[in-house]
Simulated assay, not measured.
Amino acid sequence: MHGSPLAPDLFAHQPPPRADGRLPITITHLEMVRADWTERGRAPDVAVQIEHVVAPTAAFYRELYDRVGRPWLWYERRLLSDTALQMLLDQPDHELHVARHDGDLVGYFELGGDELVFFGLTLPYIGRRIGPWLLDRAIERIFARGVTRIDLNTNTLDHPKALDTYRKAGFRPVRSESKELRDPRVLWPEVYRWPPK
C-alpha cells in the first residue's frame, strides 16, 4: 500500500496492470567518475542518521526492501530464497547503509563492487530534499571504497524525478534497454495494490 497523499502524482507514470501479467519497462544504465560529481544536497531540515549495517540478516533486509521499494514495484529480491539473499548480503564487497530520523526509516542505499545497487526513500520523506543529500552520502561512501567509476541503473517505474536527480549529481546515461517483467501487481495483488492508495 502506498499510503501517501502524493500518490496520484507520484505514480501516474506507472501503467496499469495488463491481463497478460507483463510489465514493459525501459532501464537506463548510468555511470559517473569522481571529476563529474556535483554535490547538490543541502543538509535536510530534520536530523538524519546514517548507519552502516555491517551484518544484515535476510529478514532485516526484506523489510527495508519492501518499505522503500514496494511503491516503485521493486520485486526481484523477493524472488530469492532466504539462503540466496543471505549469500548476497554476506558478499565481502556488499554494504548496506540505513538512514533514520528519530528511529523512523527514512531510506537506504546499498553498494556492491563499483555499483550503487539500490537507493531510495520511504514515502513520508520524499519531497523534503533528503534524496539529493542522501545520494551525496552514497556517492561519497562508494568513492571512499577506492572505485574510479560508479555504475547504477534506474527504470521507468521509479520516482519520476529519479533519472534527473542522478544526472544532476553527475551521472551520465551510457545505454538503455527495454524489457518486459512479470508484473508484481499480478503476481502478488494483495501486496502490490492497484491503483495506488
Results as ranks from 00 to 15, higher is better:
V186N: 05
L30A: 01
F109V: 07
A35K: 11
V98N: 07
T148W: 12
L121P: 05
I139C: 03
E39V: 14
H159T: 15
I25C: 06
I50R: 03
L135R: 07
H2Q: 14
L96V: 15
F60W: 08
T83C: 10
L121V: 03
W133L: 04
T26Y: 02
P16Q: 14
Y75E: 05
V33T: 06
P16H: 13
L30S: 01
E31L: 01
I27Q: 04
A84W: 09
A19E: 15
L152V: 04
F118E: 02
E31Y: 00
L123I: 14
D136R: 06
L79R: 15
V98K: 09
Y166W: 03
L10C: 08
V174D: 05
L187E: 02
L80R: 15
D183L: 04
R175W: 01
A7E: 05
R141A: 05
T148E: 15
N155E: 15
K161M: 06
L73D: 00
D102P: 15
I139R: 02
V98F: 09
E95G: 07
V53Y: 01
P173V: 02
V54E: 04
Y75T: 07
P5F: 09
P124H: 10
A84E: 14
L79G: 11
E177Q: 00
R78I: 14
T156G: 10
E140F: 02
R34P: 02
P56Y: 09
F109E: 04
L23C: 11
K168G: 01
W188M: 04
G127P: 09
A138I: 08
P92E: 02
Q49S: 12
L134D: 04
R77V: 03
L187D: 03
S176W: 03
N155A: 14
R67N: 09
L105C: 15
P196W: 13
D90R: 15
A12G: 15
Q86E: 07
P92R: 03
R40C: 12
L123G: 10
E31S: 05
T156W: 12
P44K: 07
P160V: 07
T165K: 09
A7G: 07
L135K: 08
H101E: 13
P44S: 12
P56W: 02
A12F: 12
Y166K: 01
H94R: 10
E190M: 03
V147M: 00
G120Q: 08
A144C: 00
P16S: 14
D45F: 10
R70E: 10
L181H: 01
R78D: 10
G21V: 12
R34D: 03
L105Y: 14
L6F: 00
H97E: 07
R42M: 09
L88R: 13
D158C: 05
P44L: 12
Q91L: 02
R34E: 11
Q14K: 08
D136S: 13
A169E: 05
